[in-house]
């Protein structure tokens, strides 16, 4: 889907990640700022991409400011941002829960 909106979720507290989604003409573009970028940057970028793809979001610009969030937090913030962007409140909990390994 395509959107003209911008949404921001999360905080700049330690162990959190703030995710801003903005319109993007084509593809998923992720701009990551993280205090653990050297150790986990590639992993975090891949994780955000994976979540967005699962939610069927193809074209989006992501600005992520990470303060050392764990994977569970990164997934939750990304899902929340995506739902808010689409104005969806009918969370498919079963589908979301099935992502947890």
């Amino acid at each position: 889907m395509t959107t003209n909106q911008t949404v921001t979720v999360g905080t700049m507290e330690s162990s959190d990640i703030m995710i801003t989604l903005k319109p993007n003409a084509s593809g998923i573009k992720i701009d990551l700022e993280s205090n653990v970028k050297k150790q986990f940057g590639a992993h975090i970028t891949a994780l955000i991409t994976e979540v967005l793809q699962k939610l069927d979001i193809q074209n989006i610009a992501v600005e992520a400011v990470d303060k050392g969030a764990l994977d569970c937090t990164i997934k939750a913030r990304t899902i929340a941002a995506a739902y808010r962007l689409q104005g969806k409140t009918d969370y498919d909990w079963e589908a979301l829960n099935s992502w947890n390994d």
């Binding site: 653990v36 050297k38 150790q39 986990f40 940057g41 590639a42 992993h43 764990l70 994977d71």
Partner: peptide
């Protein structure tokens, strides 16, 4: 298990 395995620093 909590953090994942960190990448090697360059």
């Amino acid at each position: 298990a909590i953090t994942g395995v960190p990448e090697k620093i360059e």
